[in-house]
């Protein structure tokens, strides 16, 4: 299970690849990975956080686990930041708490001390963790903070926008995916995959989180622009940052493992991410085109035709 937080990089413009490198260099010695096609995507090395806490449980049983969480930060298109954490929950070999060296040897695994039902655990994942519970979101948020508060950024963003949180759980079985909007900022994904868990599942969830954030943010910007409710100029001014900073970032499935693409495709059929995105993009473009025509007419530039 994991949680991905996504937000706007706190800078006036897109940052170049070299700055992404510096921003993500959380651990000296380890390399930031960069892929350039179809969009520049830079990822920090994975870092470990030790946890010894209560695990989610739909029946509110007190289940304790100890182990490590894997986290990383990434920047897409020099514009969008993500903080992502996940861990695999496994049955411990013994019910006794082991020394840290034992857990450190199994990065990204939390061992359950005592009895647990996988179903109960997965059913409870969407709930807010209790104070002593496993809080992957808090870890992801801190990984984002490290980037967002860097002195390399000027913080003069073209618009203010909330982070979104995507909490996910994956289990083996008959393939299925459920995407749920829990609140303005909270989403959950429940994914059933064939065979063993692979890191590709994390990439998939990060990619879905990124595109959900783009959709959410564009919706907010369109709402703020009050199309038809205010002057065309004011609307255009409010829409412009979306064109400058967001529209080119839509690149679904760019880094998704071939075997997992059907999950993306099924969400693209329903609720239909790309369809919604496209209709909003058209709306923004139409508004700006109308504004440009009006402008030409006002300045007499349209007469030439």
């Amino acid at each position: 299970m994991g949680e991905v937080h996504t937000g706007l990089l706190q800078n006036s413009g897109e940052v170049p690849e070299s700055t992404c490198h510096e921003l993500l260099n959380l651990l000296s010695g380890e390399r930031v990975r960069v892929s350039r096609r179809p969009i520049v995507h830079a990822v920090s090395p994975d870092l470990l956080t030790g946890v010894d806490c209560r695990l989610p449980s739909a029946s509110r049983s007190r289940i304790r686990g100890a182990g490590t969480v894997l986290s990383r930060s990434s920047i897409t298109g020099g514009r969008v930041v993500q903080g992502s954490s996940h861990t695999r929950i496994e049955r411990a070999g013994s019910d006794r708490r082991q020394p840290w060296s034992h857990y450190l040897a199994r990065p990204g695994v939390v061992e359950v001390l005592g009895k647990v039902k996988a179903r109960d655990l997965a059913d409870g994942f969407a709930e807010e963790p209790p104070p002593d519970g496993l809080d992957l979101g808090a870890i992801s948020a801190r990984f984002m903070d490290v980037v967002q508060t860097s002195s390399l950024l000027d913080r003069r963003t073209p618009f203010k926008i909330a982070r979104t949180k995507l909490r996910w759980v994956a289990e083996p079985g008959e393939p299925a995916i459920t995407f749920t909007l829990r609140s303005d900022q909270m989403r959950t994904i429940r994914l059933v995959h064939q065979g063993e868990f692979t890191p590709g599942v994390v990439d998939l969830c990060e990619d879905l989180a990124l595109h959900d954030w783009l959709l959410t943010s564009l919706l907010v910007i369109i709402e703020r622009a009050r199309i038809g409710g205010t002057s065309a100029t004011e609307t255009a001014v409010k829409l412009a940052p979306a064109v400058d900073h967001l529209l080119h970032l839509w690149m679904p499935m760019a880094r998704v493992d071939d075997a997992l693409i059907p999950f993306w495709e099924s969400l693209d059929r329903r609720p239909g991410f790309t369809r919604q995105w496209q209709s909003m993009v058209d709306r923004v473009r139409d508004q700006l085109a109308v504004r440009t025509l009006a402008f030409l007419r006002e300045t007499g530039g349209g007469k030439a035709q």
Partner: peptide, 8 residues
């Protein structure tokens, strides 16, 4: 820092 990200 988080609130400044989100609110004008």
């Amino acid at each position: 820092s988080r609130l400044d990200e989100e609110f004008d």
